[in-house]
Design a protein around this nucleic acid. Structure first.
Lengths: 349, 349
DNA sequence: AGCTTTCATGGGAGCGCTCCCGCAGTGTTT
DNA sequence: AAACACTGCGGGAGCGCTCCCATGAAAGCT
């Protein structure tokens, strides 16, 4: 075993580059960091030396002195298994990753599943380890955003909690979200316009912003059409397909005359489709179904699923934009970004 | 703006812990790193000081001196969009992440989509930035593994290239893979046993190990049953659903009498199902279909899809195990791990 | 010409940590 | 009693970098 103190010979240091270029350490540092205070001649010499030696700055050394790490953490604070694999996360990560590629920032992925892991994680989410944090999939009672904000680490949430729905400008942390209320309204209004009379909804969990907002949108739209909502037209799920199945059975049992269902996400809509088929009801002839997500599966169901589209990848990109501005101390135009949705009509209603 | 040189007051250093505990820097370091050369009294004093002050070691400073970073990169070297969102990746990441949680290692996520990004990435995959690299989704001509191995950075591949299929012990880098040949054999033999006479296959891309191996398994099984394989029974796709559609159409055009299809992954099987339905053929009565992946969609298709199961999460965990051993300089039992598969029978055949 | 201002430059100090050397104190052996 | 080994400990050196200050040269001013 080679001694730890030995530097691997292949990796040149700043000092060696300086020697090769015939300049001082300071000048090389200035060139590397793009300072304008360098003469063209010196700059050229340094650049050639860097290329010749294959110099790559040592991040640890730089981080030690600048107190910046040039990395951000993506924290998926969710205990359930299903988190990944959901096309939602896939899309967000794609957006985040492609956006980060345009910055000097590196992405750290942290999944905190058990609560022990979350404690450990919390300890490491400090300025000396990351420059900022992207938080995904929050339940309303998650203490993490507050903790991080206290430490004043730049934080951006993907989505928001129910408490931030009413007055987004008062939200304690920045966030990027889609207009869930508007999207749900779109879906419901669409069903009304299609002459559906008894429109039910399978709502999401009421401890998550998206669940609350999509139900609010449904209520809004129904109220706008002066439809009173029989409580038996509302069932709740937890965004999984199984919960959609259970909810749909409840709805059919309570109100067998339902002729439309708006499900708060695609997996639950899938569950609904399954139950309807098993009950011998035709979609869309007997019951129309509209989902929310416009995920890949929406075009693969039978019949294909009408669904509210949300710009997921753009959400990821917006999160990075907001966070990067914060990290650089740039005051963003707004502390939050809300993206629009639109309805993609397919065969189910 | 506060000067960069200022230490944020909240974060105590080793030295401050030492002062608080009334010991020297060395002793604190020994306690933090679990050295046995510390008296119980000193150890206790240091531990209390750490707890009191909320001390967390500075990774940059540690990395600077140890030349280790305690982080590994997960490189998804794939230019296509679809990469994420595939349940395959989701599962692997879950396995990797849960396994890493038991080590001191942190996960860096790097996706290199454009080739410019790949150059930049390659520069940063050095010992001074990461302790090891996990590589996913390789095409046979990917130069990255060789480059990294040259630099002698510990590397573990997820999957393997076609050239490593024959003699895994001769593979230039460690890898974790499933027994694709065996899985494909399982699927094919199952169709034979179900009395299918004209069994076609939709093979994957032949520049990827999985594509080659699954086709080989099909051929093996057919040969074992002394069935000659009409070349018209083989079509090729690129693992996407669309390519499965095209391939299935080709097969039906060339051999309308096909009564079974083995697709090299689930999305292509999905495409096949779609074409068969559109052609008025019943599944499984007229044509049986078997996929490979046993992904979530397999149980959601109509009819549900019989598919070869691979232990994806376990694959991720095995990759981490192998890499962590390498990083610590532990000679692993074998430089590679091949995991088994089994068939999950559903309605499609 | 003599003065000030500007600019490019070299190199010291120090970021927070680990490694290692040497010292003191205790115990063991001859 | 002397000689030696071992254990626990303190603190110097140094990892590779950025920041900043001092310096000298060039340029601009009266």
């Amino acid at each position: 075993m080679v001694s730890q103190r030995q530097r691997s010979p292949g990796r040149p240091t700043l000092e060696e580059v300086a020697a090769a270029a015939g300049v001082g350490r300071g000048t090389v540092s200035r060139v590397v960091n793009g300072s304008p205070q360098v003469s063209p001649a010196a700059k050229e010499a340094v650049e050639r030396a860097i290329a010749d030696l294959g110099y790559v700055p040592n991040r640890a050394a730089r981080a030690l002195v600048t107190q910046r790490t040039d990395s951000v953490a993506l924290v998926v604070s969710e205990s359930e298994d299903r988190v990944f694999g959901q096309p939602f996360f896939a899309g967000i990560i794609r957006g985040i990753s492609s956006s980060l590629a345009e910055t000097p920032l590196q992405l750290w992925l942290a999944m905190a599943q058990s609560s022990a892991e979350r404690v450990r994680l919390n300890l490491h989410l400090t300025r000396q380890h990351v420059d900022g944090v992207l938080l995904l999939s929050l339940h309303d009672d998650d203490p993490l955003p507050a903790l991080l904000a206290d430490r004043d680490l730049p934080v951006v949430l993907g989505g928001r909690t129910a408490s931030m729905l009413g007055t987004p400008e008062a939200a304690p942390v920045s966030f990027v979200d889609v207009d869930n209320v508007g999207g749900a309204r779109l879906a419901t209004t669409h069903l009304v316009a299609a002459n559906r009379r008894r429109i039910a909804t399978i709502a999401g969990p009421q401890d998550m912003g998206a669940g609350v907002a999509r139900l609010a949108g449904y209520r809004d739209a129904m109220a706008a059409e002066s439809r009173t909502v029989d409580p038996r037209l509302i069932a709740y799920g937890d965004f999984t397909e199984d919960s959609g199945i259970v909810a749909m059975r409840h709805l059919l049992a309570a109100r067998p005359d339902i002729d439309a269902v708006f499900a708060a996400n695609d997996p639950m809509a899938l569950g609904a489709l399954r139950v309807l088929r098993d009950s011998g009801l035709r979609v869309p002839e007997d019951v129309a179904v509209v989902g929310f997500d416009d995920s890949v599966i929406a075009s693969q169901t039978q019949p294909t699923l009408t669904s509210v589209h949300q710009p997921i990848e753009e959400m990821g990109r917006a999160m990075v934009r907001l966070l990067y501005d914060k990290i650089r101390g740039i005051q963003p135009d707004a502390p939050y970004i809300i993206l629009g949705t639109h309805l993609v009509e397919r065969d189910s209603g």
